[in-house]
């Protein structure tokens, strides 16, 4: 299949399953980009999520543009970005035009009562995947197969500090990420 069309379809499909935005879209995009299509590895995806926090625009849009760019240059970036926009565009516009009688306590709310806990579960799973690329040296899921797991002392130290700082003060992402990058260089060497 034409690579541009493929990029468009992959990101349109992924975006249609994203409810709630923000961190909710990370597991879905990771599944598609890292696991199914292997456009990049887990560590590079985690880097991209960090970059998305300090550049304009949400992670879904940013990761689509990035993957498109790396696969097929600017035309690829355009195709993937349009793909991510399409579901948001079509459903929201359709809702705006046709669902003028959607009430505040409608079926949508009940539907989301089922979906939201599942989204929370997969966000929690994403925490594990991100820890796999920083805190641990081998995937946590290998424990299920009876494997052992190693810990990166640099990664663990930065994780614990970042956790405390984020929980207590919730600084702007730019500062937290800049501080962690600096800590990574100081602890890990250059």
């Amino acid at each position: 299949m034409n690579v541009l069309l493929q990029l468009y379809l992959i990101f349109a499909k992924t975006a249609i399953l994203t409810f709630g935005g923000g961190y909710a879209m990370i597991p879905l995009f990771r599944d598609e980009i890292v696991v199914k299509h292997a456009f990049m590895d887990g560590a590079e995806f985690a880097n991209l999520v960090a970059l998305a926090q300090v550049t304009p625009g949400p992670i879904g849009l940013n990761s689509a543009t990035y993957v498109g760019m790396s696969q097929a240059g600017i035309p690829g970036a355009i195709a993937a970005t349009l793909g991510v926009m399409t579901p948001a565009f079509v459903t929201t516009l359709a809702a705006a035009i046709f669902l003028s009688r959607v009430s505040r306590s409608g079926w949508l709310k009940d539907l989301l009562r089922g979906i939201r806990p599942c989204v929370l579960g997969v966000i929690a799973a994403a925490v594990v995947f991100f820890a796999d690329t920083s805190v641990f040296t081998s995937p946590v899921s290998s424990l299920v197969q009876g494997g052992t797991i190693g810990v990166s002392s640099t990664g663990l130290a930065i994780f614990v500090c970042a956790l405390i700082v984020e929980w207590r003060w919730k600084p702007a992402p730019l500062w937290l990420l800049a501080g962690s990058a600096l800590a990574g260089i100081l602890l890990g060497g250059w």
């Binding site: 560590a43 985690a46 880097n47 999520v49 960090a50 926090q53 925490v127 991100f130 820890a131 690329t133 920083s134 805190v135 990166s152 640099t154 990664g155 663990l156 930065i158 994780f159 970042a162 984020e166 937290l176 990420l177 501080g179 962690s180 990058a181 600096l182 800590a183 990574g184 260089i185 602890l187 890990g188």
Partner: peptide
Amino acid sequence: FLGVRAAVT
């Protein structure tokens, strides 16, 4: 980037 990934986690 290792530091950044730990922070994102």
